[in-house]
Design a protein around this nucleic acid. Structure first.
Ligand SMILES: NC(=O)c1ccc[n+]([C@@H]2O[C@H](COP(=O)([O-])OP(=O)(O)OC[C@H]3O[C@@H](n4cnc5c(N)ncnc54)[C@H](O)[C@@H]3O)[C@@H](O)[C@H]2O)c1
Ligand SMILES: NC(=O)c1ccc[n+]([C@@H]2O[C@H](COP(=O)([O-])OP(=O)(O)OC[C@H]3O[C@@H](n4cnc5c(N)ncnc54)[C@H](O)[C@@H]3O)[C@@H](O)[C@H]2O)c1
Lengths: 211, 211
DNA sequence: CTAAAGTTGTGAAATCTTGCACAGCGTGAT
DNA sequence: ATCACGCTGTGCAAGATTTCACAACTTTAG
């Protein structure tokens, strides 16, 4: 019985990532099984949504006993990570870039920041948080060398589009962008922009609307 | 003719924030009018969506001449900011917190981080990036004093839920949360969680799915 | 063994969001 | 003055996502 493998929505992928994080916590606590309604509370969803999200990961999930935590983590990993550690590049070793580096350098077993890039001679050539920082000119070369498929873009807004173009040119497949710029491309590269200002302005707006 | 003022969706609010940012750039460039199809390109949407988003901001928008940039910025500001500068608190002056502080301390005219809070004696009592850092124990007191309605939460995951509870207790109205924890509450406080790991795992997943 | 309680997987309904398409209008050309 | 063009505002359809609701199954108790 092979998986139907119809495309999975972005939202479902996001929630699977979140479920997995909680599942790992449960695993640490020694919990062996979990019900959809437990997961749903951790995430403000409904049990039905959790069950639907879990459908494409493969049907372990046993009536009346719920899901087996270990197995579920494994199956989600198969789907999200393809059992394959991904090499990531971080472009822009500024304030945000270094914070991210510290945050993401911890014990992640499914991806790893393997190279930094910057155009500031003060920064490239050094090792920051245990990772080598290269000159931005070496981007294409190093991305090939390290087999990097995903990049985190943390350069100033003015440089974001041009840098993204270069990245796309190197054959990279996805970009997580922190610059407050929408990056347009005709290629099929997946671009996710995390727009902090947008999130804050939204919070401010709704701070006035609630009750 | 008063605005219908039916509730505006979260997605529309987010896009309005983004439109405004681009409009301000256009303004700087001296552009006076803009068409929905121009805005839509900057954001990968359709012109129809832009027009629909702009409907609740009040109908300036003139056939054949498009929207007047200055006016549109003003109208969006009325909606998003209520012509009112918001005071924001930043909880957790760690790596991310300080990066955010630097980023958000620039020339924002609609909100301002006015106070920091931390539980580390090394940090509170000081002035960081021009803002005073208080001990977390003074949270309630200072939030009242500064009339703060929105908080940015950048404390470690373990402390996030407890800190959010305290925040909610102070009567705050919205929280922008960076900790990788879902914050559950029965109150009507608006909570937006910006989950960076989730975004990265999503990017990694789609890096493999595209073409 | 049977029944009760509680859970999964999923079709179908409900809701939310986006895109189409066109009436109506302002503009500029003829 | 008239007309063609291109844009806005919006009813409505299409699409996407969430929720409901129930059959099927497992476990536990009697
Ligand atoms: N700091 C934050 O908390 C924060 C929050 C939200 C968004 N952002 C966005 O993230 C980006 C980075 O912010 P930051 O605060 O780290 O800025 P920063 O100025 O501290 O760092 C930017 C880094 O990029 C490098 N750089 C500049 N141009 C480059 C280029 N062409 N190629 C390679 N490297 C280049 C600089 O040398 C510097 O090291 C900006 O777009 C900013 O808008 C930052
Ligand atoms: N650094 C990043 O780029 C990054 C990215 C994504 C998410 N996050 C999340 O953001 C949060 C902060 O990350 P960070 O890298 O800045 O961590 P950090 O350890 O550098 O900073 C945390 C700060 O919070 C303070 N703190 C701890 N407990 C507190 C409490 N109970 N009350 C008040 N202050 C308290 C600490 O003293 C410290 O200053 C974490 O939840 C982390 O998971 C960070």
């Amino acid at each position: 019985m092979t998986r139907p493998q119809q495309t999975i929505s972005e939202k479902t992928i996001e929630r699977l990532s979140v479920y997995r994080r909680y599942l790992k916590e449960l695993q640490k606590q020694g919990k062996e099984r979990v019900y959809s309604h437990e997961l749903s509370k951790l995430v403000s969803g409904t049990p039905a949504q959790v069950r639907r999200d879990l459908m494409p990961v493969g049907g372990n999930g046993c009536s009346s006993k719920g899901y087996e935590v270990n197995l579920l983590i494994e199956e989600i990993a198969k789907l999200l990570d393809c059992n394959d550690k991904q090499n990531i590049a971080l472009i822009g070793a500024g304030n945000l870039g270094r914070a991210l580096l510290g945050y993401l350098s911890g014990s992640r077993d499914n991806y790893d920041i393997v190279a930094l890039f910057d155009n500031d001679p003060e920064k490239y050539g050094r090792v920051i948080c245990g990772k080598r920082c290269y000159c931005i000119d070496q981007l294409a070369e190093k991305i090939k060398e390290y087999k990097i498929t995903t990049a985190i873009l943390a350069v100033p807004g003015e440089a974001a589009e041009a840098t993204a173009e270069i990245l796309i040119g190197t054959g990279i497949k996805a970009i997580l962008n922190f610059a407050p710029k929408h990056i347009t491309t005709s290629s099929t590269v997946f671009i996710e922009t995390l727009d902090i200002t947008k999130a804050l302005e939204k919070a401010i707006y709704f701070s006035r609307k609630n009750t």
